[in-house]
Design a protein around this nucleic acid. Structure first.
Lengths: 122, 122
DNA sequence: AAATTATTTAAGCAAAGACTTAAATTAATG
DNA sequence: CATTAATTTAAGTCTTTGCTTAAATAATTT
């Protein structure tokens, strides 16, 4: 890649430098955030999180019935949510119950509000 | 798919029904939200939005320099952001300046806060 | 008018995502 | 102890995404 694309005379070099600096400062935070958002930006996973908000805990086959999806499909979503600390699991006999973790409540709260208070369109 | 996966005796049929109802009520809101989140959950696009927050407006080649990416790559991200009303564009001669729209400020605000106030880890 | 500049559009490709079905694991039960 | 049940893991497929390079548009300058 070329070093510079903006060769127009009006180009504000200081502005560009300033932006580069500003972005480099938040680069890591952006990556961390987008990593989490990419999890939440899936309808199935957001539904799982949403319903776990009120239900305390649900097992895989509960969720499979609720979401009308196959068990393995649900299980794979749950693994992702668990890997990123959105949910935790507890085994009880042969069934495994999933529940919300507190780790990302702050991130999730605005979404749940949007969903609940503007059900038709956001 | 089978109608029911949960055949265990402890299965709480009422709970499952309740969840199905609750989810059906927010289905549309969830889709609308995840559609927007999937846009924001990309590091390049979040950076564009972040930097446009303070810079008022930037042209495509500015952003290409700032993000160290090719012009077409940036242009394609901008199109997505524009299609979903995150940004607007104004032509001035042969350069096209992009700036933030107000439509999704409410959705974006928490992200910008997270990025700015916890730069190391969220 | 020809050449240059800024941007978009298009086509192609590689990687990531989300499902499917089948097999493996683990626990409970007859 | 063999069977059933709940879940995970794995492998395969299809779609989506994000880039690349090349070509097309459109405005400016020479």
């Amino acid at each position: 890649m070329k070093e510079t694309n903006c060769i127009r005379k009006e180009a504000d070099v200081d502005q560009i430098r300033r932006c580069i600096t500003r972005i480099s400062e938040v680069e890591e935070a952006v990556d961390t955030l987008t990593d989490k958002l990419s999890l939440v930006s899936n309808a199935t996973r957001l539904k799982i999180l949403f319903v776990l908000q009120t239900e305390e805990r649900l097992c895989v086959c509960d969720l499979s019935d609720i979401l009308n999806m196959t068990i393995p499909a649900v299980s794979q979503h749950l693994r992702k949510l668990k890997d990123r600390d959105f949910v935790k699991s507890e085994k009880e006999g042969q069934t495994i119950f999933y529940s919300l973790r507190n780790d990302h409540r702050e991130l999730l709260a605005p979404f749940f509000n949007l969903i609940k208070h503007q059900p038709e369109a956001i």
